[in-house]
């Protein structure tokens, strides 16, 4: 990073994936479809590539951005994720770009205050709704998952009626379904 840059607590990698509709997710084709886009370690580096990135709302259906700490693959099976889980927030169309930005700024700025628990965040563009999620290492720790939920509510400024769901990755592996 350049001298004078504002270093982030962690180095992050952005990944992109797109699934052909109707093609059921399996770990092998998921791994083939996911592409590394960029890695950054400072606030300046983040903004310099983010400015050129297509906004989530402008992506075609079945696309995902995955922003994870460097060294953590955005897969359930990764060592950092395998006993973890995620908070899932379903959004009506049109909100994903703004809320995704709020979420990742909170993550990069270490606003969640849960030590090293956060693994990454995902925005999923789908046909009828969009979904954002934040992944953490320990699905069984209620104190941590509650704190993540409360910060998520605050930074997204969600309407009270928004339904949030926590799902352990072991359950996603069992039913082979992410949401």
């Amino acid at each position: 990073i350049n001298p004078g840059d504002h270093k982030l607590q962690f180095v992050y990698t952005l990944w992109f994936s797109r699934r052909s509709p109707g093609n059921k997710a399996s770990s092998s084709n998921y791994e083939d479809n996911i592409k590394m886009v960029a890695t950054f370690a400072s606030v300046e580096q983040f903004w310099s590539f983010y400015s050129f990135l297509t906004r989530p709302c402008d992506l075609t259906s079945s696309s995902d951005y995955h922003l994870f700490k460097q060294g953590i693959k955005p897969m359930w099976e990764d060592d950092a994720n395998k006993t973890g889980g995620k908070w899932i927030v379903r959004l009506r169309k049109g909100l994903a770009s703004r809320l995704w930005e709020n979420l990742i700024l909170a993550m990069l700025g270490e606003q969640f205050m849960v030590g090293d628990e956060i693994c990454g965040a995902v925005v999923s563009i789908r046909f009828a709704e969009d979904i954002i999620s934040i992944w953490n290492r320990t699905a069984s720790d209620r104190t941590i998952t509650s704190r993540i939920r409360d910060t998520l509510k605050r930074v997204l400024n969600l309407p009270l009626s928004t339904i949030m769901e926590y799902k352990a990755h072991t359950d996603s592996i069992k039913d082979q379904s992410s949401f």
Partner: peptide, 21 residues
Amino acid sequence: GTRIIYERNFLMQMRNSPLAQ
């Protein structure tokens, strides 16, 4: 150790910094 914490407002200001262009 200490953690590097950034508030949203600060990060938004940094968006327009010449170093981030």
